[in-house]
Design a protein around this nucleic acid. Sequence first.
DNA 1: AACATGTGTAAGCGATGTGTAAAGCTGGGC
DNA 2: GCCCAGCTTTACACATCGCTTACACATGTT
Lengths: 246, 246
Amino acid sequence: MHSDLEKTVVSRILLIDDDTELGEMLAEYLDGEGFEITVVHNGRDGISHALSGDYEMALLDIMMPGIGGIEVLRQVRAQSRMPIIMLTAKGDDVDRVVGLELGADDYIPKPYYPRELVARIRAVLRRAGGNDGDGAANSDGNSDNAKLVNGPVMLDPARRLAAYGGQEMDLTVSEFNLLETLMRANERALSKNELSLTVLGRPREVYDRSIDVHMSNLRQKLQQVSGDASVIETVRGFGYRLRPGL
Amino acid sequence: MHSDLEKTVVSRILLIDDDTELGEMLAEYLDGEGFEITVVHNGRDGISHALSGDYEMALLDIMMPGIGGIEVLRQVRAQSRMPIIMLTAKGDDVDRVVGLELGADDYIPKPYYPRELVARIRAVLRRAGGNDGDGAANSDGNSDNAKLVNGPVMLDPARRLAAYGGQEMDLTVSEFNLLETLMRANERALSKNELSLTVLGRPREVYDRSIDVHMSNLRQKLQQVSGDASVIETVRGFGYRLRPGL
DNA sequence: AACATGTGTAAGCGATGTGTAAAGCTGGGC
DNA sequence: GCCCAGCTTTACACATCGCTTACACATGTT
């Protein structure tokens, strides 16, 4: 049962969260990342699904009506050591500590940046899959904190450093996420809604110009350093993409 | 380079802790991880069991009524070199030093994150089980007692000594942990939530400014000794990191 | 030309980070 | 058992940043 870490095997993930809209969004995104995801909306179903043995890990919202996340965790843990990541909105305090003491593998506060969520999921899965207990500090180094390079543009997600042709750039979180998302898409065009989802962690709203403005600012910073005005191209009526063949 | 230390035999572990409830939980969890665990609830029994030769290692709570953990450690060490991991409530670093000097192999503060505990147990067992001679913790790079060096900053986790350019610094437990965590992350940026988890042992709560304050104090001490104001950099909206290329 | 869509700039304001002080805890000394 | 000292946490004041909104202008499309 070892060394079946082939990437061809999709990881089956269970999402237990009563927030259907958010669930949709996450499910969609994770699906795109190569995970197979199932969503259930209450604690009851969560427990039974979790214990079915069909899933490699679970994402569990703490705040749920009826059987809350803590109780779900407790009951699942009574029978299973599957990896579990706790999700929670801000505002609940004591429960978190209890959750971790009960054996949650990680804890992620809202707002979820899907990117970060994926990183944590991979970290947890790797820890669970590779059977060697490694070092003490439970930092989540992960496979996708490798540096991203595309032509002269370099991004180091782990260190949160961005540079163009060796010249460092000072980017805000949103600008950084924006550039990171575009680079990961690798010249594929991304819609504004996709960008809003991954960069801002929320769906794009009706008169929402945030992505546009962040894009504008990012472009300015890029141009300041590169002199190149067209590192990022506009796809009119759709979104943006990194200029092919940079 | 597959090694033969893969033991098909389960590791027998002795847990010495007066807290029965916590003992239950840990025992159950560790059992699920493939360890065979025995729990005793006082120092007397702890010593006799430990010296029985039936166990590969012991987890030892420092705080116990009657014969305390330190005393147990001393008496066991008088006759045995078996691996021992100390468990303790947060905050007492004096005990930690004493424990390590008496020959404890590792030290884990409460609250226990089961995942981390398992990792440490495996690490300790691996060290003890493999060729003990060289003691060099190899590939996993996170040997707990190795000194950490990053530019002029030097940290000796075993002795709890910190220095900048040879100049010793007097740090509190939290400040030390903070610096240690940042150094282990090796220039990776860490979110405040991550830092709170590893440094304080709890998730960051809503209006929790503890990390910020500890950071402020740590920076002051660093500057006092180094004159360098920017050993630790802020990543706004995210967290902190050690300045790359120190 | 008329309309739709994208871009840049500016301004307000909530979010975030820092430093200081005071209160709360805990352990050690007596 | 009490008090003191040191550390951690909380509280607050202040500075700064950056996200969003709004609007004017530019560019593309029909």
